[in-house]
């Protein structure tokens, strides 16, 4: 890698090997990557907002550094885990009978 030096590194974002196609049109495979990455970004944004709200509840005011450093306690993390699970259930709703 050109940009790597002894103390800094740039890692490849793709893998060696043949990428399988699961759909008749490979554009659909590409589209799934877009959708899942976007889904993940929505979850990340939602989590940032959740951090904001929890900090505001606690302190009434805050700085960007507060948000950056914030990690929820065990209960907060459990709530987030539940939300992530339910969120994925909604977004990736398969066409199958319950």
């Amino acid at each position: 890698m050109d940009e790597s030096s002894p103390d800094s590194i740039k890692l490849p974002r793709s893998t060696k090997g043949t990428r399988p196609s699961f759909f008749d049109d490979p554009s659909m495979d590409q589209m799934m990557t877009f959708i899942l990455e976007l889904t993940t970004e929505v979850a990340v944004l939602r989590e940032r907002q959740d951090s904001l709200e929890r900090l505001l509840d606690e302190r009434g005011t805050l700085s960007r550094a507060d948000v950056e450093a914030f990690r929820p306690d065990e209960d907060g993390e459990a709530e987030r885990t539940q939300w992530r699970e339910a969120f994925l259930e909604r977004v990736l709703r398969l066409h199958v009978p319950e």
């Binding site: 889904t39 993940t40 990340v44 989590e47 940032r48 951090s51 987030r80 885990t81 992530r84 994925l88």
Partner: peptide
């Protein structure tokens, strides 16, 4: 903060695929 959130979410995405 956001990398942490992404990593946690991807864990759930992987579990969603492999179990649910």
């Amino acid at each position: 903060h956001d990398e942490h959130a992404r990593q946690r979410f991807v864990s759930m995405l992987r579990k969603h695929a492999i179990l649910d």
